[in-house]
Design a protein around this nucleic acid. Structure first.
Lengths: 210, 210
DNA sequence: ACAGAACCTGGACAGTTGTCCAAGACATCT
DNA sequence: AGATGTCTTGGACAACTGTCCAGGTTCTGT
């Protein structure tokens, strides 16, 4: 239902920019939070505007429709996360990583996502995945994200010396994805600290061997 | 928000049963389908009634509120799937399964879920998982489900001769969960037939070894 | 056949939603 | 200073929602 980009009602040729762009970004931030906190249907024009502390009609001014607003919010979320993935990918570089190092890096990354703030972004991501199962536009957004994770994962498995980096890379992504979802859905009492690291080490060991 | 059980408005002492019970079940079926097809917010009194082919007010008669209807639908979904898990668990029994057998069983199970009908149930399940991340009542439902999957998974890993059946069991569940979500979200072009079996075999091999 | 209880449903109600518009606020030019 | 376009927003509209109720239908026990 959502068209491709998103100019204000009838895009003016020269935007006064600065302020408008900032406000648009704030609205997107508010929308992303709402998606994480309440699900995609928590996104209403009025709710987003209220969360961003702006008058209700603003959302209609900056986005062609609610679908457009949601689409842009998901796109922004993905964009950010992909940039972060690229960073890590570069950091991991071609330096052959140790099993312990990789385990620790993974554990830290997951623990960072379990914080209240991380949880919301994580929930929003899974909302996107479900949305992608239904709507092709969302699928396109997620596809780029998937490329990023697969790439990082393959790099990691390669530096661990796995035989089939493609297969083990995909499996690593899937296992982590399932693990995070489990942590989300069970109030994340289980699997902290040492226990989490034990599980991750077992996973990496197994995938490297397989 | 949803209370515990769900008697009709003021539960009569003796229900005429047969018909009423059937209709209630039909409404729940319709609700489950809607959750899978459109998400939890696709569940409205009118939509459920229409999908079940009954008058609009029926849903209000059989369920105390919309929340109650949703809760019961999710509970029913879980109940069914748990029963199915128990069957497989019994079938798997204590007969030491072969790696090839297990791989094939897993592949068949996943392929069965990729059919259009399976997709809907699967989507509904992930909706439940996200709901569980937010609402405690949903979490309770999912907890019972998790016990079922973990148990089956542990049994499988034990019969494959894994060392740490607890850890490898959890990892198997997580990996499959992530894999299914990936299949859902990417239109499931990738990973069919032989390729799927290859990935599963690698996973089982790795987890057994780790 | 009759009474009473259970079952069923069309319609109504207030609240929320997406979207739009007319009018004002502001910035930038000449 | 005034003119011209952009930005901003309160308010209105129809459509949809959850929930309820008054009255109807169908059954069971006598």
């Amino acid at each position: 239902m959502a068209g491709p980009p998103s100019p204000p009602r009838a895009l003016p040729r020269g935007r006064r920019d600065a302020r408008g762009e900032r406000r648009r970004a704030e609205l997107l931030d508010a929308a992303i939070d709402l998606i994480g906190e309440q699900g995609i249907d928590g996104v209403t024009h009025r709710a987003v505007a209220a969360a961003a502390g702006v008058p209700a009609a603003s959302t209609s001014y900056y986005f062609r429709s609610k679908d457009d607003l949601i689409h842009e919010a998901l796109r922004t979320l993905a964009e950010r996360e992909i940039a972060r993935l690229r960073e890590r990918r570069t950091a991991l570089g071609d330096a052959a990583a140790d099993l312990d190092q990789t385990t620790e890096a993974l554990a830290l990354w997951i623990e960072e996502q379990i914080t209240p703030a991380g949880r919301i972004a994580m929930l929003a991501q899974y909302q996107l995945q479900l949305e992608a199962a239904r709507r092709p536009e969302a699928r396109a957004i997620l596809e780029a994200w998937k490329v990023g994770t697969d790439d990082l994962s393959e790099t990691a498995m390669r530096s661990l010396g796995a035989r089939d980096v493609r297969t083990s890379g995909i499996l690593l992504v899937c296992a982590i994805d399932g693990l995070r979802l489990r942590l989300l859905a069970s109030g994340h009492e289980p699997l902290q600290g040492a226990e989490l690291r034990g599980v991750l080490r077992a996973l990496l060991t197994g995938l490297t061997a397989a």
